[in-house]
Nucleic acid binder design. Structure first.
Length: 816
DNA sequence: GGCATTTGGCTTTTT
DNA sequence: GCCAAATGCC
């Protein structure tokens, strides 16, 4: 293993100044230590560096004691790594070397011989995190990481448990894993069967409820009489039970089951649990603040064994409450695991002083946190910039210019990121970057495996491999169109249900009868025969080849080839890419298993490009320069978070702001616009309350942003600069004043506002009818005078005398 | 059954 | 204002 070019010191790995994700050079000594005697020779051939000769137990102990991998750690990190016994909670603030601690701890466990690779359970939330952890451990311990078969996400490890003991929870070990899409289609069928209007009670909503229950570890029986009354007149629990039953018949599980069924497995089978207690000597959990109740229960059951549990997390970075994460889990850790040791990592290696101070000060406005005081030994750097723009378009334009300026100064685009609250904000930036010819990449957008054509193709593969996979079969039975419509499908379903057989089997039976029209029968016969033929070939053909044959013979490829829609070529390209990606797997079933759990594709680019993503997907990443646009009330904090989450919702939004700022290493620039078009309506926006929570000493408010000489500015060019100055200078007075003014106006106007514990939480109220009439002349504070041309509830279409026609909310205009 | 039109909804996202 | 899904018509 050669040293990396550009390693900056003679030490193997510098004390982490800020490069949390930088791969650390391997420790050859450790690699040898961990190799079995028989493998040492292989290892040494690969390894040109001088190292100590492999030896017996004494030599091993000696080398472990030297433990060079501990050198880069600071005192707290080292404490966290070396405290192997008992429960340990590592409260790792942003940029304090959380991942380093986790990976080094695992290396330490292995190096000291406290456990072998397969005796360590290491859990992450995302596949990406698992992959990265594996890579970094590999950097420390070499190929020994391959033995860590229990390193993965909660879900992938859950699948492993369930496949091993499927029969104990009423499944067969080849069960299929349904994704959200399958889940909703299944629920829809259920609602139809129960004669419940799925217009009024959407399947999607029920899916969310069921997920919510599973996240809290609740089965159908636990829900009864509880909070299910809101759906379908209290039939939610009953539907939940029916759904679970359907899943069992289909030999399928959804994502929630991967947690809940594991809990049930362990609870009902103490002997199985005891077996795992013996196995797992050490357990480690990443991002503990993101665990939900089910995951907590899952962990607690397992942790009753060796009791060596190490959880790493940061309560200030809990931003997934809306999908069931319980910050409480981390807040309660010491109570849940008596004798637990809490170690705080507060030395930040990522951000400059101003950035860190800004983020820290902001987050102190939250109550109910464990509290950490982050500090840095680095420079103060640039203050955090705050500036405004007239509207979102100009915001994008200004940021575009700043990016180009930084680029001229020699900064890499890869080191810049724009973090938005909601994905619709991305569009304006994309438009702008396309115009400028600036390379950008969107992180976390629509995922490859969620595309229609990919899901269709996968359905074909699933139905081939797993003839009982009704959901897959149903998806593609009439795709491409082959004249098998509603009627035929109904008959199919009836037959299948009556005899309790899979749809494909029912289809095979039906084509022998007179029940369906000859035309449909012919089509169906072809489908049935196709699947039978493909299944026969599984054993005889390489799976990639078979996949191609399936897509070809089913007419699926042809369907897109004939299509003259603009996206057809792209879809065909995606299908090719799908086949290509299958080459990495041994068989069709192995590939499908992977797909079910790993819905992400890595597109980390080699090209230099600006990164565009939501604040949520930015967690765990870092950039030299971070732009944070859209800091406006209603958008950030988001109105819905306030309406639905109240104070807790506001605090989560604030944590999101904290996450955003702490992504920046050198420069953080916060922006807000005075006007924004939301749902196609122009709305005047009030600067975010978070701006007022920033520490003055560390923030620099731009007086007025660059002027863009009236170009492309729309119909009201002259006034826009006046307006902008108003807003830019307005910020220098406390924005709280304006927020209050806004509250007053809202309350006095047509919207209700309420105060929650002294914090303004504006609540939008749906109004019926309008105080205005078509043809009335009104005044708008930004657009001037105009005449109403149309009224849609509280939305007015107005033909402005100067600004042209716009749609605005009626609360923003006055009668004139 | 297939296409054209209308309707509704609209924060964040993993597995 | 924009997109997907659902309805409605041929």
């Amino acid at each position: 293993m050669p040293y990396r070019a550009g390693a900056r010191s003679s030490k193997l790995c510098e004390p982490a100044p800020g490069y949390g994700s930088q791969p650390c050079p391997r420790y050859p000594i450790l690699a040898v230590l961990l190799a079995n005697e028989s493998e040492v020779s292989v290892k040494s051939a690969e390894n040109p560096l001088p190292r100590a000769a492999p030896g017996g137990i004494a030599a091993r102990a000696l080398q472990a004691q030297r433990a060079p991998y501990l050198d880069p750690l600071n005192a707290e990190q080292r404490h966290a790594v070396e405290t192997l016994e008992g429960a340990v909670l590592v409260l790792a603030g942003a940029g304090t070397g959380k991942t380093r601690v986790l990976t080094t701890r695992i290396a330490h466990i292995l190096a000291t011989g406290a456990a072998r690779p397969h005796e360590i359970l290491a859990v992450t939330f995302t596949n990406k995190a698992a992959r990265e952890m594996k890579e970094r451990i590999g950097g420390l311990v070499g190929h020994a990481v391959e033995g860590m078969q229990w390193l993965g996400t909660f879900h992938s490890i859950g699948v492993k448990f369930l496949r091993r003991h499927a029969e104990l929870v009423g499944l067969k070990s080849d069960f299929t894993i349904l994704d959200t899409d399958d889940q909703i289609r299944l629920l829809k069928q259920l609602l139809q069967a129960e004669n419940i209007d799925d217009k009024r009670w959407p399947a999607r909503q029920l899916a969310v409820m069921i997920d919510g229950w599973k996240n809290r570890g609740l089965g159908p029986a636990d829900v009864k009489g509880g909070d299910d009354h809101v759906f379908a007149n209290g039939r939610a629990a009953e539907l939940y039970a029916a759904y679970q039953e359907r899943l069992k018949t289909l030999n399928a599980v959804d994502f929630g089951d991967l947690l809940v069924e594991v809990i049930r497995l362990f609870r009902d089978n103490p002997d199985v649990l005891a077996d795992y207690h013996r196995r797992f000597r050490f357990m480690l959990v990443d991002e503990y603040q993101d665990t939900n109740v089910a995951q907590y229960l899952w962990l607690r059951l397992l942790a009753q064994g060796a009791k060596n549990l190490c959880c790493v997390g940061d309560d200030d970075q809990s931003i997934y409450g809306w999908r069931g994460a319980e910050v409480d889990n981390i807040l309660r850790f010491e109570r849940d695991f008596p004798g637990a040791i809490v170690i705080r990592l507060e030395n930040n290696y990522r951000s400059t002083g101003h950035i860190l101070a800004t983020a820290s000060h902001l987050i102190t406005h939250n109550e109910g946190r464990l509290g950490k005081t982050l500090y840095t030994e680095g420079e103060a750097g640039e203050p955090v910039g705050v500036a405004s723009a007239w509207d979102s378009e100009e915001e994008a334009r200004a940021i575009g210019e700043e990016i180009e300026e930084l680029q001229r100064q020699g900064h890499a685009l890869n080191e810049m990121a724009i973090l938005v609250r909601a994905s619709f904000q991305m569009r304006e930036f994309e438009d702008r970057f396309v115009t400028l010819g600036l390379d950008y990449r969107v992180i976390g957008g629509p995922r490859f495996y969620e595309r229609m054509e990919i899901r269709d193709a996968l359905a074909y593969f699933r139905a081939t491999v797993q003839p009982a996979d009704d959901l897959a079969f149903e998806r593609i039975v009439n795709t491409p169109k082959r004249g098998l419509g509603e009627v035929t499908l109904q008959i199919l379903h009836r037959t299948a249900r009556a005899q309790a057989i899979p749809l494909l089997q029912a289809a095979a039976d039906l084509i022998e009868t007179e029940e369906i029209t000859p035309k449909a029968r012919q089509s169906l016969r072809e489908v049935v025969m196709n699947f039978a033929r493909w299944r026969d070939q599984i054993e005889h053909l390489p799976h990639t080849e078979l996949a191609e044959i399936i897509l070809e013979e089913s007419g699926y490829t042809e369907m897109w080839q004939r299509s003259r829609t603009a996206d057809a070529p792209g879809r065909l390209e995606n299908l090719k890419e799908l086949i290509r990606s299958m080459e990495d797997y041994d068989s069709l079933p192995a590939f499908l298993e992977h797909i079910a759990l790993v819905m992400d594709t890595d597109q980390e680019g080699a090209v230099d490009a600006v990164n565009l993503m939501t604040l949520h997907s930015a967690k765990g990443l870092e950039f030299d320069t971070v732009f944070l646009p859209g800091w406006e009330e209603g958008l950030f904090p988001h109105q819905r978070a306030l309406d639905e989450g109240g104070r807790a919702g506001l605090e989560e939004e604030r944590r999101l702001a904290y996450v955003g700022i702490t992504r920046a290493k050198q420069r953080a620039r916060i922006r807000f616009a005075s006007n924004r078009r939301i749902h196609g309506l122009w709305q005047t926006s009030v600067p975010s309350r978070f701006l007022d929570e920033l520490p003055e000493d560390h923030v620099e408010v731009a007086e007025a942003s660059t002027s863009y000489g009236g170009y492309g500015g729309g119909a009201y060019g002259a006034s826009r600069f006046d307006e902008q100055d108003t807003f830019a200078s307005a910020y220098t007075t406390p924005g709280w004043q304006r927020a209050k003014a806004y509250a007053g106006r809202s309350a006095g106007g047509r919207r209700g506002a309420k105060l929650i514990e002294g914090e303004l939480v504006a609540k939008s109220v749906v109004e019926e009818g309008s105080r205005y009439a078509v043809g009335e002349r009104v005044f708008h504070v930004k657009f001037g005078y105009g005449r109403i041309t149309r009224i849609d509830g509280n939305k007015l279409s107005i033909d402005f005398e100067k600004a042209g026609s716009k749609k605005v909310l009626e609360s923003f205009v006055e009668r004139h």
